[in-house]
Design a protein around this nucleic acid. Structure first.
Lengths: 162, 162
DNA sequence: CGTGCTATTTATAATCG
DNA sequence: TCGATTATAAATAGCAC
C-alpha cells in the first residue's frame, strides 16, 4: 500500500478503520462490476458496513435478475446436458463442510440450484441452532412462502406430489 | 489499465476474455478478503466462471459461519432493539423491487433475516415461473429440509406450532 | 469528522517464450 | 494455451486542512 504499509489485520483505530472501509468499498464494487461486464458472468457481492443495517449489494436486484436470466437463454442442448446429472448436487451437499475456496468439486450439478441454495444455507447449513426466536419465526414464514410458490409452479406442470 | 487501456465492455476475443478472468478473479478475492479482515465485517462474494459449474465463492463456509456468529455475540440490548421492529422486514419485502444499489431503506429490520432471505429470493421473489422442472424439484427438496430444520429448532423452544 | 492530495504499492494488459 | 515479464494504470495509506 501507498506510504506506510498496512498489516493485514483488524484496524484497531476507529477513524482509520472507517476511512479504510469508505475508500476500499467503492474500489471493490468497481472491480466486481468490471469483471462481470468484461467477461459477462453472473456475480454478486454483499458487504455489511458498520452502523448500516442494509448491506452494500452488487449488483442491484434488477441487474441480477437479468444476469441470471441469461442462463435460461442458453441453447436447450446445453441445459439438457446439465439436467442429466442429478446426483452431483446431492453429493455437493454432503461435501459442503469440506468445501474451501477454489477447491470446488467440479461436478455437473445445476448452476441455478447452487446459486440459490448455496447462498441460502452457506451461512448455517442445517443447524439453525444459534438463531434467535424472532429470526426463526420470520425465517420460517418466508421459507414457507417460497415452498408454496414452488408447489404452485410444480402443480401447473402436473408434478405437485413430488 | 497497464499498456493499452481496455474499454469497459464484453471482451469479444475468447482468449483475452479468459485471460482477464484468470488474472482479475484472484485480485478481486484478495480485495474482499482484505476488506473483511481489516474492518472485521461480514462479506461474501460469488462469481461464476465460464466452463466451471461451481462458482468461486468467498469466504469459505467455515469462515462465513464465524463471521455471522459475531452478530450473535452483540450485547443483548442491541439485539433487543432490533427485535422491536418487526414490520420493517415486511415493508422491505414489499419494496424489494425498487431497491437499487446503495439506496437502501434504512429501517431497523433484523440483519440476519435480511442476509439470508435477501440472498434467497433476490433473484426471483415469489414467482419461480422461469425455473425448469428439475430446478424446481431440487429447490423444493432443499427448502423443505430448511423448513424442517427450522421447525426442529422452534419445537425445542416450545414454539413448534407457529 | 470529512475532503483532497500525493507518494507508493497493487493490479494488470500486452507481450514474449 | 499457459506462465513469466514488463510497462502502465488504478487503488489507496498517510497526511494536511
Amino acid at each position: 500500500m501507498p506510504h506506510g504499509r498496512v498489516k493485514l489485520q483488524w484496524i484497531v483505530n476507529n477513524a482509520k478503520r472507517r476511512a479504510t472501509m469508505k475508500k476500499r468499498l467503492p474500489g471493490l464494487v468497481k472491480k466486481i462490476s468490471e469483471l462481470a461486464i468484461l467477461c459477462d458472468i453472473p456475480a454478486c457481492l454483499v458487504v455489511y458496513r458498520p452502523d448500516e443495517e442494509q448491506p452494500a449489494v452488487w449488483p442491484s436486484t434488477r441487474e441480477t435478475t437479468n444476469v441470471v436470466q441469461k442462463y435460461y437463454d442458453l441453447p436447450e442442448s446445453k441445459k439438457l446436458k446439465k439436467m442429466l446429472d442429478v446426483e452431483g448436487f446431492q453429493q455437493q451437499q454432503v461435501d459442503k463442510e469440506k468445501a474451501e475456496l477454489f477447491n470446488a468439486h467440479r461436478d455437473n450439478c445445476d448452476q441455478e440450484i447452487n446459486l440459490i441454495m448455496k447462498q441460502f444455507i452457506a451461512h448455517r447449513r442445517h443447524s439453525f441452532e444459534d438463531l434467535t426466536t424472532e429470526v426463526l419465526i420470520h425465517l420460517k414464514l418466508k421459507v414457507k412462502e417460497s415452498l408454496k410458490a414452488i408447489d404452485t409452479r410444480l402443480q401447473k406442470i402436473h408434478l405437485g406430489g413430488i
